[in-house]
Design a protein around this nucleic acid. Structure first.
Lengths: 215, 215
DNA sequence: GACTCATGTTACCATTGGTTACATTCTCTC
DNA sequence: GAGAGAATGTAACCAATGGTAACATGAGTC
């Protein structure tokens, strides 16, 4: 705020890139889908739409930058949460979906972009893809930690990881798109999601063997 | 095919609505996102883009129609599968995600639209929303069947249903957007998804109590 | 054969993402 | 502190897009 005021009325905006990303995220959180217009966004930032191209190669690149930043922040939050969680591998695992869901609640707009369907295959999303892969890798690594510590059974953890990724992502996605009201009135959705994800993880762990059957 | 040829070169197309929906689905399956252009679509159907507005109020309405038809077909497939499954409530439950995933594999383009993030709130998607709600209701009803038959514990099944919906939807969504390669090489994804979903359901069932804890 | 309704066409519009040439400001060097 | 050059913004322009309106054509009905 204070720093934003420094050069408010100047010819040069100062922090156009961040401003645009923030405005885009705000709009997406409000409207539910990345349906914003580059021109509206630029106008809201007090700038011509052509100015945006000094900072992002395209509209898509703006989205990619938001997604990449989102996954980077998610990763940071996850690591911080694991640091707090201490040495218990299972606690370190459980903390991941919790962080994921907390971040989603904090930044639904960013999440909409992060979960956006099928990013273009070109370089635009390369950074976002890498950041996302790192986040997934952390889940996998922690699951292996659990195996090594004897908290989870030995064997190929592919199914387990897929299942964990699936519930978390699935419930997040359903919640984000407002589809969970159908299944439970709509009250305190966030609580239901968190409890369900946590309970699912416990169920996966308790179901010794089922998720490790012959593939 | 045969019937499509009947009036091929005529002024009136004959089945423009179905043709447009089919072409759109094909494009979406290929390109991964509903990024098609009404004009390209119309051209591919051998028609001016303005002609599409005789059948769909807007581009969005086309998508809504695809989604609605998709959920209707899903529901039909689910009911048919349950008929085949017979009387065992658990079998009738397990058949639902299997049908879901099989449909997704058959019609990825349609699924992309069905799972599309946050539909507009206006009437455009009213029918699609209703069809989707019916599909969810079937899962809920079958879960209650299982409770009544003693196959699943008593109590509020909200978490269980959310969990089942979550894994299924989540893995489908991850598979559709090509994100599962990260977690397991990429070979036979479809198999991994189906096995994981099934195993998850079994885990939920086996984990007596965990998913029914105090909400 | 004329009337009518459904369906398609042509011509048009405002808006959008994107590009290019020019203007302004910041910064760094001498 | 003057001036060069990089960064950043503006104005004008473009082709393509979703959408609309007026007109044309076809099929079915009496």
């Amino acid at each position: 705020m204070a720093e934003a005021k420094r050069k408010q009325a100047d010819y040069h905006h100062g922090r156009l890139a961040e401003t645009l990303m923030a405005l885009a995220v705000k709009r997406i959180a409000r409207e539910g889908a990345p349906a914003f217009t580059l021109r509206e966004l630029a106008a809201e930032a007090g700038v011509t739409h052509a100015a945006t191209y000094r900072h992002f190669a395209s509209r898509e690149a703006l989205l990619a930058a938001i997604a990449a930043a989102g996954y980077r922040e998610l990763r940071e939050r996850e690591e911080a949460a694991q640091r707090v969680a201490g040495d218990d591998p299972w606690a370190r695992l459980l903390v991941l979906p919790e962080t994921y869901l907390a971040f989603m609640a904090d930044a639904p707009g960013t999440f909409h972009v992060m979960l956006g369907h099928r990013w273009a295959d070109d370089d635009t999303y390369a950074e976002a893809r890498a950041a996302r892969a790192e986040s997934y890798a952390l889940l996998e690594a922690t699951a292996v930690e659990c195996q090594n510590a004897g908290v989870l059974p030995e064997g190929d953890p592919a199914r387990l990881i897929a299942a964990m990724l699936g519930v978390t992502h699935g419930l997040a996605s359903l919640w984000l798109s407002g589809q969970l009201g159908v299944v439970a009135g709509g009250a305190e959705m966030n609580g239901l999601v968190r409890e369900t994800v946590r309970a699912s993880f416990e169920a996966f762990r308790a179901s010794d063997g089922i998720l490790w059957g012959s593939a």
